[in-house]
Every structure is written in C-alpha cells, then in structure tokens.
Design a binder for these strands. Structure first.
Lengths: 105, 105
DNA sequence: ACACACTACCTTACATTGTCAAGTACTAAA
DNA sequence: TTTAGTACTTGACAATGTAAGGTAGTGTGT
C-alpha cells in the first residue's frame, strides 16, 4: 500500500473513530487497520501529536488483559478540527476523482 | 489546502497529464494547479525524480515566448507505473470513503 | 535604452508524517 | 518458566511537499 497516500488521512481516520466513543491506542491500531494498513509506530506518535494540540484528552484505566490502557477522549477543539478535516478530504478526493474521470475520456 | 493529502497524489496527477501528450514543466504547474494548489518548487523536483526513475524521457525545444522548454515524454515503464498508481489511489480513496460513510450512520 | 512583466527552469533549507525496529511491562496459558 | 498476547513508547530514517530565492529569455511601455 502506497505510504504517501496515507499522509494526513490516518489522522482523519483516528479522529473520526474517537468521535463516537473513547478508545485506547492499541484498540485504535486495530480499528484503523481495518481501513488501511498501519502499524503501532505510526499511531502512537499521532495520538501524542493530537493530544499536544488539545484535540484529545487522556486518562488511564486498568485492564484485566494486560497493562493499563490510555484512553483518548475528543475535545470540543477536536470536534471542530475533525469536521473541517473531513470536509477538506472529501473536497480533495472529489477533485482528484473528477480529474481522473476527465482523463479517461 | 491540506498539504499532507497531496503526498503521492501530485505524482499521479502529473503522470496522468503526460500520458496523452508531452508537456513541459511550467505547463504542468498550471495543469496540476487546476486540480489542486501547487507551486513550482514541488513540480520541478518531482519531474526530476520521475525522470531519474526512467518513467519520463526529456528533450528541449525552443520557444518564442521565453527560454527553451524541457518537454517530458512518458516511457513504457511510466505507463505501467501510472496505471498501477491509479488503481492504488482509487482503492485507497474508496476505502476511506466507505469508512467515513459508515461513521455517518 | 531601461524597467517591468511574463515565461521557464532550478535549487536549498525546512516541516511533516509514516515506517521499521527495538524495548518495556503486564497477564494468562502451556 | 517460557511463550503469546496485550499495551505503550521511542529513535533513526525515508519520502514528499513548501517557501523562498536565483538565473535567464522575450516582449511591452516609457
């Protein structure tokens, strides 16, 4: 899978995943992997960035299946950010699709 | 416009543009700009990369409107490469669109 | 003749983001 | 007690787009 295509889009997928319910990192790796190939080394730094930018708040919770989980909760700022990001993606993808369709004629 | 979304996609747009007819750099900057914002500093290094990878061959041609133009012609290798890249992009964009649609429910 | 705008190309320093590989540590099953 | 699965972290690296600057040819207006 082309690594470049994912740039910026993984952020969108992670944010959208967390909008509905708080999730922890390892869970997100699996969730995002259903859409596009991704590995831990990509997701954890991304979560840290989004937290530093105040789009996420975090809290720890014990687990019976391993070490404590760090849960991510989206903030009001995160909500605004993801809505804007989604609009941008849709607009971008549509423009590219239109271009490719034109070229096919 | 989100700079990250463009990663890899500009390459696709440039390649697709040159499939039909040979084009020169400055012309490509304007062509690609119709689809997504882009500047010269992005396109010229990209053209060089694709030429180094033997996806393009180049030749110079005089112009009455300014300095000589460097034309880019796609090679057989370039054709194969762009077809594969387009398939990957379509597959990728569909997966992301599906995911976003799911989240909307 | 001179300045300016437009065409056309190139390059360097930089920022961002994804990959790979390694490491830490807890729980449970073989 | 070794192994597998869960869970988080980090550092060195690669790829690609951006910004800003430079060089040079052609044509227009003053």
């Amino acid at each position: 899978m082309n690594a470049q295509f994912k740039k910026g889009v993984l952020e969108l997928i992670v944010l959208k995943s967390v909008v509905n319910k708080d999730m922890y990192g390892y869970e997100l790796v699996e969730e995002v992997s259903k859409v596009v190939d991704v590995n831990e080394g990509t997701i954890y730094p991304l979560l840290k960035r989004l937290t530093n930018d105040h789009h996420f708040e975090t809290y720890l919770k014990e687990s019976t299946e391993g070490p404590p989980r760090k849960y991510y909760h989206i903030t009001a700022s995160g909500i605004m950010y993801v809505e804007n990001l989604e609009d941008e993606w849709v607009e971008f993808a549509n423009r590219v699709s239109e271009f490719l369709k034109e070229k096919k004629k």
